[in-house]
Design a protein around this nucleic acid. Structure first.
Lengths: 204, 204
DNA sequence: TCTTTAAGAAACGCAACGTATCTACGAGAA
DNA sequence: TTCTCGTAGATACGTTGCGTTTCTTAAAGA
């Protein structure tokens, strides 16, 4: 037996499809802003979106994937690769922009999410793919190859591992440090590591 | 009111102090081997150690710290810095040894633990400190400075960030990849990144 | 022997996940 | 306009696992 329900009197008319989905993803974002990732709960999201948990689980299999969708939706697209004519500036500008994509959220929100991503093999795979296929690593590659054509760096250095290097290092800094790298840290990574390496002659 | 207890008839006499602690840490290790980190539970540990949860919590504030203690206890100390006369070999040997310290455990156990470590700011701090103060980064530094004295590499390159570079990269590989870097990956990191950078002349 | 410390057992409270069940709304078909 | 079907929405549940509380009692030490 079940007590008759007053029916969805949340005040707003019943939403569906894209409208509902948008409301949910916005709610995720808002909850992230307010509570960070550690205190993000499915109940909280459902409540904030004025819907219910089953609605969430009909669309996303779990919390991480829901947050992934929310981040993907609300994050600003990162810019086209800068082309200032000097690799150092290109990298600095691009990496800075990349690291500050989620500045609207508390650090913990992004950090916690990233850490959580790493727990699932499949999500790690997705993450790695997102970096390369049309992702920031590709952008880095473009910038570096342009610099190589300009003669700024040694083209022989441009292996996949090296191209991804700045990103890998800054991500590690973020993971272990818990804070977004400052402009100075970015500059140090470039000036102490990435650029000297790229400029190093073969058989140096 | 409480039903009178048959008293700790687990068969073994009541243990205390170091003996008990050792049994607990061994139990953690065994549970890690059997279930990995994802399915490691405090109840499971207590049961396996033939003790009870309060005993665990009297000693360690939470799961991560307990596991930390278990890893610290059971892991073999890593060797003295190798000194083969050639930096590449030194690094290769040392890093390989470092990465295989926990080969008795399933990969997931170490990976899951590391990921979990990153979730707590205080534990991140502890982790960073463990790397430098008497940790592997210090060993790297020793090996690199010896190489610099031999004239193998450019001493001006030896900033803290560069010294830690191989470790940072391989850790990132582990975190994002979920697998311990193979010997080949270690070699690639050294041959494509670390060594060319260390050898690069200043103002190259 | 007496005292004190801590082991050990059991159960609890809590948070959060993910699911099951049911009602009822509303868009599109008939 | 009416019917119907998909799904929104509400609620409650089962589960897991953490960390705690409470109590009894073994055993170390004075």
């Amino acid at each position: 037996m079940r007590k008759p329900v007053t029916s969805g009197r949340t005040g707003i008319p019943r939403r569906r499809g894209d409208e509902l989905e948008a409301a949910i993803l916005d709610a995720v974002w808002a909850e992230l802003v307010e509570h960070g990732y550690g205190r993000l709960t499915m109940d909280g999201i459902a409540a904030r979106a004025r819907t219910s948990k089953p609605v969430l689980y009909r669309r996303w299999p779990n919390r991480v994937e829901l947050v992934m969708a929310a981040l993907g939706r609300n994050a600003p697209d990162y810019q086209d690769p800068p082309d200032t004519g000097e690799l150092r500036t290109d990298l600095l500008v691009f990496l800075r922009g990349l690291l500050h994509r989620f500045d609207d959220l508390p650090v913990d929100a992004v950090h916690g999410f990233l850490v959580d991503l790493m727990r699932d093999p499949e999500l790690r795979r997705v993450f790695r793919a997102a970096l390369t296929d049309g992702g920031p690593v590709e952008t880095l590659s473009v910038m570096m190859h342009r610099a190589a054509e300009r003669g700024e760096i040694n083209p022989a250095r441009l292996t996949p591992r090296v191209v991804a290097l700045p990103l890998d290092l800054l991500r590690d800094t973020f993971m272990v440090g818990g804070e977004v790298a400052s402009d100075q840290v970015i500059a140090e990574v470039l000036d102490e590591i990435v650029l000297p390496l790229l400029r190093a002659p073969s058989n140096g």
